[in-house]
Amino acid sequence: MLSVFLRRILSLLPTLLIGITLSFIIIHLAPGDPANRFLNPNQTPEMQSSIRERFGLDRSLPVQYGRWLKNVIFHLDFGYSFYSGKSSRAVIAVALKSTAILSFWALVFALIAGISLGILAALKQNRFIDYFCNNLMIFFLSIPGFWLGLMLIGIFSIQLSWLPGAHLQSLYHHQLGPGARFWDLAGHLILPVITLGLPLAATFFKYIRSNMIETLNSDYILAAKARGVNRSKILWKYALKNSLLPIISLLGIVIPALLSGAVIVEVLFALPGVGRTMVTAVYSRDYPVLMAAVTFGFIAVLLCNLLADICYRIVDPRIQHSPGEIS
């Protein structure tokens, strides 16, 4: 078992290497001299050459590539933010925290909503509630996240003033007691979590529903029914376990979607996360930060995949590694 995990982690390395290389290539394929991207037009040639030196742009491409690899792999160093002057690693590390909070709660929300409605719909297959849930989920899948967020903000924070529509915490957050702090954070999170979580809930719903229906109609469940095992036992012991397990592997696929969705939500609700940092960096052409964000996102997805895979193997040791899964 342990060797399987080790091999799994080892096979991650080439993927990582290719990813980092790819990001290097993208920067160098982009039009224009990379040095110019750090500058405003009224800098002197001396300043330009000092910048070239600092970022190693005066060396040959292979040397630059070697440096890039060394800095990224050993130091997670992407250079300094052109905009704020801070190390871009630090900028992203701070932002990563709020993205993690947001994504985590959105995932929890989506799992709870998607799974419970999915089970309900599967049990009442082809009844009104099933149709209703199905169509509701198509609605959630189709609604653009930013528009949903915009409408939620409009209704709940501007019109009704029930919930804050921006930021992760109030200005006076630090003066609050621990309990009040929690409620403050929770209040700020409700709308973003709903915005980010609903499409995800719909994905889980569809998956659980069809899985559940398939399991309920499978031979061994029918056999158990025929033997007279009682209904609730069939449901909880066999069917549910079998339809829930694959969710773990679905998580690996969902994570990139979650991070992508977080970009919009963070911008919309002015949350200080990776996505908003990225968009700001795009506006200000802050390219070390951009690189750091993309690479961190990439690594985060890989790690989540690895985690999902390991969990799945622990829960269900039968599965085999199949070629062509994310590794």
Binding site: R7, L10, S11, P14, Q320, H321, P323, S327
Partner: peptide, 8 residues
């Protein structure tokens, strides 16, 4: 058969 990856 089975696992096909870069190493084995």
């Amino acid at each position: 058969t089975g696992s096909v990856n870069l190493f084995s």
